[in-house]
Design a protein around this nucleic acid. Sequence first.
DNA 1: GCCGTTTTCGGCCCGACTGTTTTCAGTCG
Length: 581
Amino acid sequence: MTASNESVIAALRQLVAYTKLEDGQSQSFRTRAYEKAIDAIAATSDPVGDLSMAELKRMDGIGDSTARKIVEFSSNGSIGKVDRLKQRFPPTMLDLMRIPGLGPKTVLLLQEELDVIDVEGLTEAIEKQQLRSLPGLGAKSEEKIANSISLLGIHSDETRTPIAEAMDVAKRVMAELDGVKGVLRIEYAGSLRRLSETIGDIDILVTAEAGSPIVDAFIGLPGVTAVLGSGGTKASVVMDDRIQVDLRVVPDAAFGAALMYFTGSKGHNIALRQRALDRGLTLNEYSLSEIDTGTIVASNTEADIYHRLNLRWITPEVREDTGEIAASGDGTLPDPMHVSDLRGDLHVHTDWSGDGRSTLREMLDAAVVRQLEYIAITDHAEDLAMNGLSRERMLEQRDEIHEIRCDYPSLALLHGAELNIGPDGSIDYDPEFLTLFDFGVASIHSHFGLPQNEQTDRLITAINNPAVTVVGHPSGRRIGTRPGVDFDADAVFGAAEETNTALEINSHLHRLDLAATLLRRAIETSGVMFAISTDAHHTSAYSNVQWGVAQARKGWVPKERVINTLDTDSFIEWIGKKRNS
DNA sequence: GCCGTTTTCGGCCCGACTGTTTTCAGTCG
């Protein structure tokens, strides 16, 4: 049993926390090196627990020492250095470090001076007013730390918020700030703008002539349950007792620089700032400027700043410091896809499905508004309990689609189905009935817990079925609530490529399936094609396509690898390659 | 601890806010 990437990352996070205590500082070069290694592992789909020392060291940011620790963890289930540090620093001291405002220096001070090593001890010490006797701390610190203890739950690693929920909060905050006098521009930034799957804090950027009025309005917004800090240009609050929202206000002329700074990632920013220094420039959240003279050379737009650093604008989704800067510099970063590149939608439900909410005509009318050239209606097939369509109902729907077709001359209308992949890879209906469909998307809706070899066989069996043109939301994950099925990605990519079967990039923020790491792996190691689909159950869900396209960008997917960027004739030809083979 | 068109040592991004300081240390992003 080898260690999963998640468990390796968790172990390295522990290593970081203990090393901060050992070093007595929050940002030693060692801890930064470990954190860089964590980022590298998070960005790869390689199972690092299976890699050799040499293979690990080939990864950017992993050197001899960290590679050895990963191998050690993979074989022993623990890292010796962590075990040793645990003797010196009880694990409860890590809980103290999670309290907002408490860093390694203060936590060490608490241990040395007051023998405080856990949250209970700290609470007692505060009640006895012992903290104010320590150097650098006073009555106000005591009060602040007491308040912070109540926020502990919001800052633990387990409470990252799924992107769909965080996006809702961000949109709400932005809508409310939009009405505040003096606000010029508002944008969300941070990991939300990078389309991370889960979000720690929501970052909101506002431009305005004066910061204070905006900050005041922000900390008074409905739903704000705690104010963590506020100054003239920035503030942090907790919304709905649940998620931290950070606001930053800058002058409008600094919008581009601020958006870059606030979008991150940290690693991307550090790399860019280094690149600036190499060119005699310095980059901060206000501008890119000359070191010698202070003259501003770019600040207004992100593109201006990238250009002055001899880079093409880099789409936010790929700013993870995983090679995007070098790729932008040498022109190998794919051109970012746009919603307008898509000509068709290949996964659309209607109210014929039990869970569909809009009628066929409503979905088609809205598709025309989207200026789509082709669409596949793919209601649930019969094996899906409650929501699936029987053969009789499918034939009725086929008739309706046939009748309605002439009302939509601009739209090539395909009658498809969302087929269910059974535990053995079989799908609904029978081969003869399946030939009645113009199109088939097959998805996993059950049996999520099978072992990897069975999931892999199951997917490949479905991929080999001539009725299956696209595999829908291939992993079946629901971000934050259900992990995807465990499958051998390379084997599935290979089978799909060989049979001209596309893999879906599902646009729902709850799904974003396939994951970006797998997309990037697929692009680099196979020729498999993708379909960006909305899986819309209502006309309003068509707008989710923006997230599917953003997910493709995050996975470095060029539009040449997406079948629904093809024009209608080329698309029909492409799907015919499998159906007619 | 990592890394290398100033390579095997000597560097390593930048600024806001807070509380405790009379000029700065700690924390955070």
